[in-house]
Design a binder for these strands. Sequence first.
DNA 1: GATGAAACTTACATAAT
DNA 2: ATTATGTAAGTTTCATC
Lengths: 157, 157
Amino acid sequence: MTALDLIDRKIVAQLMRDATQSVAQIADQVGLSSTPCWKRIRRLESDGVIERRVALASPQALGLGVCAVVILRAPDHSAEWRERLGAVVAAIPEIMEVWRVAGENDYLLRIAVADMAAFDQLCQRLAGEVPIREITSHLAIERVKFTTAFPVDTIRR
Amino acid sequence: MTALDLIDRKIVAQLMRDATQSVAQIADQVGLSSTPCWKRIRRLESDGVIERRVALASPQALGLGVCAVVILRAPDHSAEWRERLGAVVAAIPEIMEVWRVAGENDYLLRIAVADMAAFDQLCQRLAGEVPIREITSHLAIERVKFTTAFPVDTIRR
DNA sequence: GATGAAACTTACATAAT
DNA sequence: ATTATGTAAGTTTCATC
């Protein structure tokens, strides 16, 4: 896998912004003709730079009105516990995002559920399936910003 | 906008999982023929249930090795400060996710940058552009889970 | 890299049942 | 809802420069 040049990053930026664009449109945007642009896109996909193409939906329209960020502390820093948590969160679709963070044995989870009753049930399910030393919930009032587009423009080559 | 039935939710689930599928493939998955499936997809898009289609890229492949969750506390709970923060985070592409959470005047931010130097610069820029009472950084060691697919299967009708 | 043109697949629209 | 049909558009491959 070779390094990405400026044109590659422009292509990825375009596709992260709007993947409905045709190859010809993207070629225009980045200053290429269709064929070489198409070849670059294929290479970016086979190299794993572009991982997948997905539709983004509206949580409100889907009836998922409650979003929460849960911070939890592990009882220990064992590999067993980490694997256990990984298996549990993988099996729970309401848990959309999980980050293990440095410092303490802390994890941050982002959760999408229909209502507070569902959120309560989810917390109880989580606590029942994996031992947790401490858990703190932050209910989201407002989604101020959310994007899946990485800041490729700011990367220095 | 009418309520979503089971088939609608199956269609959205398929497209959130993989938007490269053709209408015919999705029709197969949800048990419809192409034409009505295509009409439903168009309706889901015009109703705003499906908001957009994007490519998801690999942060590592893009040279964005550092992910951090920043928790910050506002100096007050004024609308002015909220709007100020909104404008600032909208202008900074490294800030990918911002949630205003209940309870205290707290905000959670997810940030993607190339390295620790860039992270430090970003924190200083942020603190320089908007007054902040308190800021706490959590460096992500591992992305245990990340999905953009909402849990539509678990919604009760 | 650009261009042009095939061959193929899909999207889209319409009509009939 | 289905099947069928047709046109437009996009993708993919290839040959040539």
